[in-house]
Simulated scan of single mutants.
Amino acid sequence: MRYFAGASVLDFSPSLLFRRRAIGDIDRRFVMTSVNSRSPARESGVCDDGIVTVDEWRRWGPVSPFPAAVKQIVNDLKVLECKLDCGIEFGGNGGKLQGPFGAYEDKKHRATYEALDDPEKKFRFFSARQIACRLLGSRGYLCQKCWLAMEDCMCSLVKPCGLWKRIRFWLYMHPRDFLRQNNTGKLLWQIFGVQSATLCIFGIAEDEEIMWNEFKRAGKSQVCCLYPNQNSEVTLSVENAFGNSTSENPGSSMADEDKTLHFILLDGTWNNSAAMLKRLKDHAKLVWGDEDLPCISLATGASAMHKLRPQPSWDRTCTAAAAIGLLSEMSLLPKLSSYGLDKQADAVEEALVVLLDSLTGRRLRMGRSITRKVRNTISIC
């Protein structure tokens, strides 16, 4: 049996074939065509009728059950495909729905969105549709582990590493960053595992429920958000947050699950991160009666990914680099120096370089520029 980038050819149903077509030098389109077949589901968890199962969902990174809202939209897309008798096409900038199907579906989903009178329902519908389209549009094209095109898969080059068991990362990811090839947050669960670095998609009820249940168990004092919010009274440096504590050494109670330090990494554009932080604070107020969620500001510089993804200021960096900065700064604290945090930071740094090399190589092969216009470096926080 032939294997591609961590997934066998049986991982993709013959009824959901994606054919990659070059459009010009840099554009590409993915066409999904359905075959009227009702053969049994393959071991991959992808059925011939287009159903996405929990197994397939979790291979992309989440730990939650397959979200009900996403499932409904996937089903609606398949019903609409049969009704219109035309294939679902994804392509262009952002891999959006294309062609006659895309035009019809765009009108349909906008009407559905406008009919919702509750802002929360509108927000959840937006998130679910983003995820549903990205799932269908990436089948058979992206590796389910590293989110790179199959021919660029970097999984064999990423070295797993254990994370100190008193730390748990939460990748609070905007739906528009889900399955993005240049996303760096995905590296954390590739390296540390999904129980140490857990994906939570912004606006997906099942994911957010899992995350907040863990926060409730741990207590507010054990939850921090990595965000350079200098205007907040509860923004602390790593030294202030962990170095000046008069309490017992955190390592002395490592067996106590309630003492796990939960770090939220906002994984999205800087414009979107403000809305994500607000949602976290609103929920914190409901849970603890106080919206002042502690924020950690890092003394970090530019990461390797800035070569392809320049940031608007030096205190704004990619998600993986934020994790590197946190682990590195914590490793310098005397009471935390014996837990190998520096080696864990090095593991993420190495994976980040591998990702950069993979993305750079792809750009060169496709004739694209590997340099980006440098943005304004003045902090706007």
Rank of each mutant, 00 (worst) to 15 (best):
L298H: 02
C295I: 03
C295P: 00
I296G: 05
A299Q: 05
D258I: 14
K259S: 04
L265R: 01
D290A: 12
D267F: 03
E291R: 10
T269N: 07
S273M: 14
H283I: 12
M276T: 00
D292N: 15
D292S: 15
D282E: 12
E257D: 08
D290W: 15
W288K: 12
A274H: 11
A275Q: 01
G268Q: 06
D258V: 10
L293K: 10
D282A: 04
H283Y: 12
I264Y: 01
K259P: 12
E291Y: 06
S273Q: 15
G289W: 07
I296N: 08
D258G: 10
A299P: 01
T260E: 06
V287G: 09
M276V: 01
P294F: 02
A284S: 15
G289I: 13
T300V: 13
E291T: 01
S273G: 05
G268I: 10
D258L: 14
D258A: 06
G268D: 10
V287A: 10
K281Q: 04
L286D: 15
P294A: 06
L265W: 00
E257H: 08
L293G: 05
E257Q: 12
G268S: 14
E291S: 04
K259H: 14
D267Y: 07
L286I: 11
N272Q: 15
N272T: 15
A275D: 10
L298Q: 01
M276P: 03
V287S: 09
F263W: 09
H262N: 11
D258M: 02
E291C: 01
W270T: 12
S273A: 13
V287W: 07
D267C: 07
E291P: 02
C295T: 03
R279W: 14
V287N: 07
L266W: 01
K259C: 10
H283V: 06
D292P: 03
L293H: 03
T260Y: 08
K259G: 13
L265I: 05
F263G: 02
L280G: 00
I264F: 06
W288Q: 10
G268L: 06
T300A: 05
C295Y: 04
T300W: 01
L298V: 06
W270K: 11
L277T: 09
K278P: 08
T260L: 06
F263I: 02
G289Q: 07
L266F: 01
A275R: 06
F263Y: 04
M276S: 04
